[in-house]
Design a protein around this nucleic acid. Structure first.
Lengths: 182, 182
DNA sequence: TATTTTTGTATGTTATAATATACTTTAATT
DNA sequence: AATTAAAGTATATTATAACATACAAAAATA
């Protein structure tokens, strides 16, 4: 999984230098030992939230500044470079952009083998799905309604209800889905 | 100093319930042991940023949601209820609103005894001060310029340069200052 | 150059975050 | 009611965050 410590270290060192504070001075301002601050800057420690909070306050910067993951302006993702998640019903999920903390959504590329069905229990909490049909004919069912999407079609629905994906054909079906969490 | 653990606990418990997840399920989604999640919810643990990050990601909420300190809509501060900071040169500082992580500024009430001087080294990093004169005549000097403020006057200046407060009179001088950090 | 001061790093110790496991309690099923 | 399952809590152990102190290197002063 994702490790924040190098990012925090970089941010902290940069901010401290910008304010021309020594480890000693920041230690005094924040109430955190300079040894700890040094270790955090070098990415050698995984600080607790309280510690990082005090450092942020001492520095007079927001907490967010310290965990800000200066993402590159552009991020190209090759479908084939990502290891897919194979579901029990044969559906293949490729997380193109997995959930990112400061965005509220994630994007998957999905492949369904011929004559396959995937039933998804509603993800509670007001989430929404946007499905972009990509190849083949996809059937989406929720509650009572069923929709058939041809390549290029799209559908949006509240995902807090149970919904079913079905590929009734002999051919593979592909689509992308954007899941948005309130 | 400020302790985030009860706030995080409350936020986490609330969010997890809203999404109808058990400790076990969230543990599985986040990769953090359910015992730890339980302890955090009860405010019994001060989690590391990496741990909280994983929990936030598992929950599909932003990190900020977990450390969000639902401030009350209104906050009345009585000058006399706050213990002042007495400076070496006799200046008295009362932090009316001390630095708050998600705002970028803080507000002090300041009292200067007769014939007193306070020299402030520039707070580096593009910070700004807004001084609101409240009682008596206040002299503010930065670089070459000197300004004299009567009660009710105000001044704004970049605080990255050395600046001096002076009360040349026989009477007490009071003012408030808002310090804004870039 | 020698001396002092300032800066960051290294080391040993203590407190506690995090885990794994077992336990209790409540809810569901037979 | 008895049994099973699902939920949260308690306990013991391990890993490590955080501190205090001492050290090394660089900068400033004499």
């Amino acid at each position: 999984m994702y490790d924040l410590t190098p990012i925090i270290g970089e941010n902290l060192a940069k901010l401290r230098r910008k304010k021309r504070l020594s480890l000693d001075k920041l230690s005094e301002l924040s109430g955190i030992s300079k040894a700890m601050i040094g270790q955090i800057e070098r990415g050698e420690s995984n600080p607790t939230v309280n510690t990082l909070w005090k450092i942020a306050s001492g520095l007079r910067v927001s907490f967010g500044k310290l965990i800000d993951t200066n993402q590159p302006a552009t991020e190209l993702v090759r479908l084939n470079d990502i290891t897919p998640i194979i579901d029990t019903d044969g559906m293949t999920l490729v997380p193109l952009f997995s959930f990112d903390n400061d965005k509220g959504f994630e994007i998957f590329s999905v492949t369904m083998p011929p004559h396959s069905v995937h039933e998804a229990a509603g993800h509670v909490g007001g989430s929404e799905e946007y499905v972009l049909s990509f190849e083949g004919n996809l059937e989406v069912t929720m509650e009572t309604e069923t929709y058939t999407l041809a390549a290029g079609d799209a559908i949006r629905f509240k995902a807090d209800q149970t919904h079913t994906y079905r590929n009734p054909s002999d051919k593979i079906v592909k689509f992308q889905t954007i899941i948005y969490y309130s």
